[in-house]
């Protein structure tokens, strides 16, 4: 799907050139693989809303189309409904999932209609962040202990006498209310809604060089242009948990967030289809820095996703060839 480009008269020459290149690419990659391989057919990838996911999806699309001759369709179904879409074989693969434990239980373990296809190489990490300029005046803000008694620095009209803590997007794992309570901090946890709204909130404060503390994570392309510092939270201990929505004893949340690998998911149907795309997507791995770069091109510099993918693939032939092995 996404955008079937039709050539305008002006684009004819260019179109021809692309065609020649594509054929050449096919021939060369074909010969590299010894020519003996199954036809790829159509692969449906699901792009999630955030820029990093767009980067994954379009890089994979570029490689599958240009190097394997697949036709790649892109759907944009929300994070939870996409599990049923995979169970129905309407989506073949999701290239970045932030560990939806309940859905893994239902679709991966119980029904076995969705298959975990390993990590995409990215390490997701959540924490409390502040802009670096705050450290000049308050070097003690590097750790949570330093925040104690100075919460008022983060006051805002909506937090009243307390400091304001900007909470994260509701779709992400979090336990900040619990941490605030457990650490005895005088913060008011303010929910700012979805990611774009949260970005809007802290960006306004950062532009005015005002104090702000918020839930944030890596990989995120904005991190490259924002100078943020993570506030050190208590160390992890055995049995410490991150997802407060699962309830239970509040004490089990008193530690910093874990860093965990982001997963790829295949539909069972795709995983067992024997398509050459399966192997390539299984091998698909890159780093936080790679993704941040491509996502920044797309979301920051407004480069078309197709172009951004092409640029990265051309500059990283070695990484891409490793996926094709």
């Amino acid at each position: 799907m996404h955008r079937t480009r039709r050539k305008s008269p002006i684009g004819h020459v260019l179109g021809l050139a692309v065609l020649v290149l594509a054929v050449a690419g096919l021939v060369s990659s074909g010969s590299a693989l010894g020519g003996a391989r199954q036809a790829c057919g159509t692969v449906t990838l699901n792009e999630q809303a955030w820029a990093g996911s767009t980067a994954n999806t379009y890089v994979a699309k570029y490689v599958l189309e240009k190097r394997l001759g697949c036709t790649v369709k892109i759907t944009k179904i929300a994070e939870i409904p996409v599990f049923q879409a995979m169970a129905d074989g309407k989506v073949d693969a999701v290239l970045e999932d932030w560990q939806h434990v309940d859905q893994y239980q239902q679709f991966v373990r119980k029904q076995k209609s969705v298959v975990l296809a390993g990590s995409n190489g990215l390490i997701g990490h959540i924490g409390w962040f502040i802009p670096r300029y705050l450290l000049k005046q308050y070097p003690e803000f590097k750790t949570w202990r330093g925040l104690k008694g100075k919460e008022q620095v983060f006051r805002s009209p909506e937090s009243g006498s307390q400091g304001m803590f900007l909470g994260g997007d509701p779709s992400y794992v979090q336990k900040d209310k619990e941490l605030i309570q457990l650490l005895g901090l005088n913060f008011k946890h303010v929910t700012v809604g979805a990611e774009p709204a949260q970005v809007a909130r802290f960006m306004q404060l950062i532009k005015q060089r005002k104090p702000v503390i918020f839930y944030w994570w890596t990989p995120q392309y904005l991190n490259a242009s924002l100078d943020l510092v993570e506030v050190q939270l208590p160390p992890r201990f055995k049995g410490c948990k991150d997802d407060a929505s699962s309830g239970g004893d509040i004490k089990q949340y008193r530690c910093r967030y874990d860093a965990y690998p982001l997963m790829k998911l295949f539909s069972k149907r795709f995983a067992t289809s024997g398509s050459p795309a399966v192997k390539v997507l299984r091998n698909f791995r890159w780093s936080n820095a790679d993704q941040n770069l491509v996502a920044k091109w797309i979301a920051g510099d407004k480069v078309k996703p197709e172009k951004a993918a092409e640029r990265w693939v051309k500059a990283n032939a070695a990484k891409v060839n490793a996926w094709l092995k």
Binding site: A78, E79, I80, H100, D169, P170, G193, A194, R201, S245
Partner: peptide
């Protein structure tokens, strides 16, 4: 409203969908 920071019921409904609750 829940998606842009109103909290309250709107936030809980959103969370219900996006976190599978």
């Amino acid at each position: 409203g829940g998606l842009v920071g109103s909290g309250g019921l709107g936030y809980l409904v959103t969370e219900g969908l996006v976190r599978g609750q």
